[in-house]
Computed example of a mutant assay.
Amino acid sequence: MVRQVTDMNNRINIAIDGPAGAGKSTVARLVANQLSYIYVDTGAMYRAVTWFLTKHGVGPEVPDQVLEHVQHMLIELTPDHGGQRVWVNGEDVTSYIRTPQVNGLVSRYAQIEGLRTHLVQLQRQMALRKGVVMDGRDIGTTVLPDAEVKIFMTATVKERALRRFNEMNDAERTSLEQLEKDISMRDTLDEQREISPLRRAEDAILLDTTEMNIHQVVEKIVSLCRSQMDGERLR
């Protein structure tokens, strides 16, 4: 069960954007825990779609088939000890969506306009009651443009690759050099895609985490959120 704050009128929505490997998901989850909010991992939703479509042999080059298959998907996000579990049509796919194969294809599926529209609608529904921390690449610009707090997290490519490398298990293991190349390519794809490209919202606070540990990042964002709740000016 996810705890909710008791003051319903004081809840806000928090959008955390940034490039691959910036640590958005981990930070967003911890921020949500501290504020007793709901955490929505939009990246996991795109990964779940990627896993589902590759399992059924539907590539990103056939968008009509992609959209047809997505209509038969039920994606659920549930809290778990220290994280979140991802379910597709009742199957726990948490361990399947972080593989190199999914990593290499998710950006290509994410460029399909109809797919993004479908998932954005689901994500907005999740945020209607406020009290949501949502992370991704276009949350502050497209999904929740009215979020009360917007953060754009980033770090150097080298640092992001190292973080991703340290998170990998033996089944996912690849070289640090290859990870740097993959992340750099992912940045280019995300920044140059025509539909909802990765960019910092004009009113988002830039947070470079290269020299920060995770506790410092979470503390900073929680402080900003509490200031917003108290009606203070963010900076």
Rank of each mutant, 00 (worst) to 15 (best):
K130F: 14
V70I: 09
V88W: 13
L179H: 05
L162C: 00
V102Y: 02
M134K: 01
R233T: 15
L53Y: 14
K55P: 09
V40T: 03
E177I: 11
M229A: 13
I195A: 10
S227Q: 15
Y39L: 01
H56R: 11
V222Q: 08
N9R: 10
E159I: 06
L144G: 00
M185S: 10
A22D: 13
L144H: 02
T54A: 13
S196A: 15
V217M: 08
N89R: 11
L206I: 01
K220P: 03
R164H: 04
Q111V: 07
D41V: 01
R235E: 06
I205N: 03
L162G: 04
V49Q: 06
K150A: 12
T154Q: 05
I139C: 07
D187I: 07
T6L: 14
V157R: 03
D17H: 08
Y109A: 01
V66P: 13
V27C: 02
D208Q: 04
S184K: 08
Q101D: 13
S36E: 11
R29I: 02
V31T: 00
D80M: 12
L179K: 02
L189G: 01
R47S: 10
T174P: 06
Q125M: 14
Y109F: 14
K130R: 15
G90V: 12
G114P: 13
V133S: 05
P79V: 02
V66W: 09
R186I: 10
E159F: 04
S223H: 14
I16W: 08
S223D: 15
I195C: 12
D203P: 03
I139R: 00
N169D: 15
L234V: 03
Q71L: 09
I112R: 05
R186Q: 09
R108W: 00
V5I: 15
Y46A: 03
V31F: 03
K158G: 08
A32D: 05
Q111W: 00
V31E: 01
G231I: 11
A155T: 09
L189Q: 15
T154E: 12
A15H: 11
V66Q: 11
V132W: 05
M126Y: 05
E219P: 05
L224P: 04
P145V: 02
E68S: 11
R199T: 10
Q216H: 12
S196Y: 06
V31C: 02
I139N: 06
N13C: 10
S227A: 15
L122Y: 05
I12T: 05
M153E: 02
K150E: 14
V157H: 08
P145K: 04
S223W: 08
R164F: 03
H56A: 03
D64C: 04
G114Y: 12
L234Q: 07
T156L: 02
L189C: 05
I195E: 11
R116N: 08
P19L: 10
D146A: 08
T188R: 09
I205C: 00
R235V: 06
I97H: 08
W51E: 10
R47C: 08
I112N: 06
Y109P: 01
